[in-house]
Computed example of a mutant assay.
Amino acid sequence: MLASIAKQAFSYLAVDYGMQIVIANDKVVRFESPSVFVQIRFDHDRSYELGVELGLIDTEDRHGPPFNLVEVMREKHAPEADYVAHLQMSSSIVDPVAANKLALFLRYYARDLLEGNSMGFAKIASRRNSEVLEYDHARRLRLALAESDNAWESLDFARVAQLLEPFLSSLSPAQKLRLKIAKTRSDNR
């Protein structure tokens, strides 16, 4: 089912970009040109998620794993990015309307990438790296805050200061006050 729907919805990839279908089954349809690939994926076994990935064919300009359409759309500030990020079918059958929307979004927002623009891929790779670092920082901050709460309750003020100090610029005013108090109390012990 995916193969026939994707072939129809994404047929412009062959016409406009000279891509050929190299894989076509119920889980993935892959188009390739000499420099770029596009994969339409459907998880008909569990999540029923329908998505699109694209990337450069293995070259020295390649920027890691494929990028999903959501990453491309976020880089282009597309208002429909949230729709694409949460796109799931209600059953194991692909909705042709949803596939057509993905094809339209890919055509509109990824034109430069479909043409093989290495700088476009580099920008998305940079955004991905920034988002990974932001996520890691937020995760480490959450852990430090939780652990500092336990240390505060145990009156281990030196530990509170040790945990919060590396995140000073990310702390709320109340958390900064807690850090200041913890430093004062740990110095007095």
Rank of each mutant, 00 (worst) to 15 (best):
F105R: 04
L164E: 01
D43A: 07
L155Y: 00
F67W: 07
R62W: 08
A174K: 09
L13G: 00
K76F: 02
R127M: 15
I57K: 13
P166V: 04
N188A: 09
N100R: 07
R111I: 08
T184L: 12
A99C: 13
K76V: 10
M1C: 07
L171M: 03
A151K: 02
Q162Y: 06
A85V: 06
G55A: 07
D112N: 13
N25K: 01
V72P: 08
S126A: 13
L56N: 05
D58C: 03
K176Y: 00
V38T: 08
V22W: 02
R142A: 09
W152D: 00
Q39S: 15
S33P: 13
R74V: 14
Q162A: 06
D149P: 00
Q8L: 15
L106T: 05
Q8V: 10
H77C: 04
M89H: 08
I21S: 02
V29Q: 08
L141I: 07
R159D: 10
M73T: 04
A158W: 09
V72E: 07
L2K: 12
A78R: 11
A174T: 07
L56A: 06
A3D: 15
S186T: 04
P173R: 09
D112T: 10
F10Q: 05
D149S: 04
N68C: 14
A103D: 10
A6S: 04
S148H: 01
S172Q: 13
D61V: 02
W152K: 01
K183A: 12
L155S: 01
K123G: 03
D26Y: 06
M73C: 01
E147K: 00
N117K: 11
I57Y: 07
P173S: 11
K76T: 03
N25Q: 06
F105D: 03
E49F: 11
E49Y: 14
S169I: 11
N100W: 11
D156V: 02
